[in-house]
């Protein structure tokens, strides 16, 4: 069994990580209103997770240049470009999103969880990419996992695992 030697990559806020090593797990913690985007190509055995915080880069182009993964509209294209560079093909990519938490019982002026979700859907729709599975909204925290090779994608919240 090689599994014990395999890496677990942790993706921080405003960051992304990719891998092409079968069996490696990529994980991002503390998804509140942020969105985690997981993509995986089983043919090329390439996958990655992006954890972005805000929807649009035009609120601060300087920050977007420094940290493109902070924003959905700069981070998502970068995640795909990096996956293509590692050999992934668009038609093989399975896309999953999770996060975008919000408080449903209260009026939220900022509505950031919902707007983070909307920008992802909009970008994928415009680029003719299907979202295979999503678990967004609600107020719950989520930790998103992706296993390279199998493409298994799941999240945990309050200790429970939900497969996506």
């Amino acid at each position: 069994m090689q599994a014990t030697n395999l890496m677990k990559h942790i993706v921080g806020v405003s960051d992304m990580k990719l891998s092409k090593t079968s069996g490696e797990v990529i994980v991002t913690h503390a998804l509140g209103s942020c969105i985690g985007v997981a993509i995986h190509d089983p043919v090329a055995c390439v996958g990655g997770i992006l954890h972005y915080m805000l929807p649009r880069s035009n609120v601060d182009p300087d920050k977007a240049r420094q940290k493109p993964c902070m924003f959905g509209d700069t981070g998502i294209p970068l995640l795909f470009q990096e996956a293509y560079r590692l050999g992934a093909a668009k038609e093989n990519l399975r896309v999953v999103i999770a996060g975008g938490a919000q408080v449903f019982a209260q009026k939220d002026f900022f509505d950031i969880g919902k707007r983070n979700t909307v920008i992802a859907r909009k970008i994928f729709w415009k680029n003719k990419v299907m979202i295979a599975a999503e678990h967004v909204g609600d107020h719950i925290p989520r930790t998103l996992f992706l296993e390279i090779g199998s493409g298994d994608t799941w999240f945990t919240s309050h200790g429970e695992r939900v497969d996506l």
Binding site: S33, V103, F110, H139, P141
Partner: peptide, 22 residues
């Protein structure tokens, strides 16, 4: 602080930005 992902804990987002405060 919650929006930047610090202190999510069990509660998750559990907090709205009040329009009057803004």
């Amino acid at each position: 602080a919650r929006a930047v992902g610090a202190g999510i804990g069990h509660e998750g987002m559990g907090l709205a930005m009040d329009g009057a405060v803004a």
